[in-house]
Write a protein that binds this DNA or RNA. Structure first.
Lengths: 325, 325
DNA sequence: TTGAAAGCGCTAACAG
DNA sequence: CTGTTAGCGCTTTCAA
């Protein structure tokens, strides 16, 4: 059925070893022979069997990636950036979703390891419970934590400085004259939720006012309802991410509350829809392409064996000011 | 280094053949032996090498998927649904992005075939130019077109009836009293853009008013600018998708045009942000989970060899009425 | 129901 | 620079 490297070698009049070397672009093959092999391959429409190559060479040119939810546009953008760069480097991406469930995540990691991925990029869904999966993975292949991280896990990580981002938001609101603030965030089960909460608490000091749910628009809507029912609105609402902020904006608009006149609202991430909100949302932009670049740089160094020392890289996010504040 | 099936067989006191049969759950193994093998595997912490299994069995339990842009929340949701169902069936997803470029798409398909995926799910980015890639793939493995399709390609397809969706929008706007309509869509380079445009033209009949760009929020903003400059606004704007609609809404809001009082706006897809728009967007909901279910059902039939006859499956989308109309 | 043996297609030693 | 040879770890005949 299929054309094998033996057929190519025979046609080119060389051994399979020479054919293999020529096809994989190794040096140490006479130019004339290399050309003959390449020509033969083309004529026969040879398609190398990468499965066989993987078995022998013990490398699959495939990177596994586990994300909490691909449907989250922030993660989707990250996945897209990573995929593009991998593809440019002739690698493929095996993608898995954890659905924010550490057990699922654990199984996904196992499945990826069974498939012998060369390395793993993981957005760990839980600050603590993702540790086991990460450890089993790290025992076998280079691992990189992206965006989120596991408490006390001594592996590499690339992401942004969430605390600094929140700090910028708080300063901006304060400069705009906001005296009373509230933070609408997520229960700190993942490291970003934790860091943003910590950042908020440190930035505002004592008497912090905090509402915690999850990173969904539904929670944003619910939190806004709570705030409306609770009494006079604060001057500013600092949201844990843009999705929450969009939920808050929607609920406020439905109740004839004017933003930013009655209350200012800010988000985090700068997802594509932040700009389209009414009013357009002030938010903290994460440099996703830089994150992806840096992630693959670090992972590349680990893979090549050049530099295996774990390193954490925190990029600084930038405040994007729009009309909501 | 690694524990192999030989070690497991030795420990269980059986041959590798029996071990293999026991581990893969085949029948025809005495229960006592099966238990011994499974116990040995557990004790040794055996991890099967699926690469070796794939080489021999010629099946990778991996499905390739090519999408135009994962960052598009509509596609992302589809990918997530597909991935979940595959994982439940012990398969993995090899994901690739075409970036709406048929050449990239062609290369991605080749790369996936080289990796010996068992089947391919493709959202072809171009009505015509995606045909070559699809044909090469179809010559090797079962192929399913998802959402979009290639003109004249006689393979299976699962998606929605775009024309019917647009028809519903037009009827709804007409019932609400809209007399003059305009369609803000995308150049018909992909099949959905084409079908939605066709649907609109057939629904409104002669004298149709059509503005074509691409499926981006930027085009929505630009189109809205054009409409504002052009003179009196129509009664209703039918948008080719939600992203365009959100761009239109944003631009209109910036110019103090009231929706739906001054003009009604409708979208297509029902992405998560449609509901959060101000005002919440009337749109056509695509039943993505049903699409994913149906896609894997059809693909499963093709893979098992039960039923290889190509079939097109058009699910009917439903109109979701919100305040923007 | 079991085991021996033959590869799947390729790469990597090792000699030449 | 090239060829021979020996596997990578598994599944699958085939025969018992």
């Amino acid at each position: 059925m299929g054309v094998t490297i033996h057929d190519v070698a025979a046609r080119a009049g060389v051994s399979v070893a020479t054919a293999s070397r020529a096809l994989s672009g190794q040096r140490g093959v006479r130019a004339a022979n290399r050309d003959k092999v390449l020509a033969a391959a083309r004529e026969l429409d040879y398609e190398p069997n990468v499965v066989a190559a993987s078995l022998r060479s013990r490398t699959t040119h495939t990177i596994g990636m586990v994300v909490p939810r691909i449907a989250n546009p922030f993660f989707a953008t990250l996945v897209e950036s990573i995929e593009k760069r991998l593809h440019d480097g002739q690698r493929s991406l095996l993608l898995a979703n954890s659905h924010y469930d550490p057990d699922v995540e654990q199984r996904q990691v196992r499945a990826l390891l069974d498939r012998r991925v060369d390395a793993l990029i993981m957005i760990p869904c839980h600050r603590e419970h993702s540790g086991a999966a990460l450890a089993t993975a790290a025992a076998r292949v280079p691992v990189l934590q992206l965006d989120l991280r596991v408490d006390g896990f001594a592996g590499s990580w690339v992401g942004v400085d969430h605390e600094a981002g929140i700090w910028q938001v708080v300063r901006h609101l304060t400069e705009r004259g906001a005296r009373s603030l509230v933070f609408v965030g997520a229960e700190p089960t993942d490291s970003a939720a934790q860091a943003r909460l910590d950042g908020y608490r440190r930035a505002v000091g004592d008497g912090d006012d905090v509402l915690l749910g999850d990173f969904s628009k539904e929670w944003g809507q619910q939190a806004a309802k709570l705030l409306l029912r609770r009494g006079p609105l604060p001057d500013g609402i600092v949201c844990g991410n843009d999705t929450i902020a969009l939920g808050v904006l929607g609920e406020l608009a439905g109740n004839q509350v004017r933003v930013p006149d009655d209350v200012r609202v800010a988000g985090f991430d700068d997802i594509p829809y932040a700009e389209l909100a009414q009013p357009p949302l002030t938010t903290v932009r994460q440099p996703q392409h830089h994150i992806a670049d840096e992630a693959l740089r670090v992972l590349g160094a680990h893979l090549s064996g050049e530099d295996r020392t774990p390193r954490g890289t925190a990029l600084t996010p930038t405040l994007t000011i729009r009309s909501s504040t």
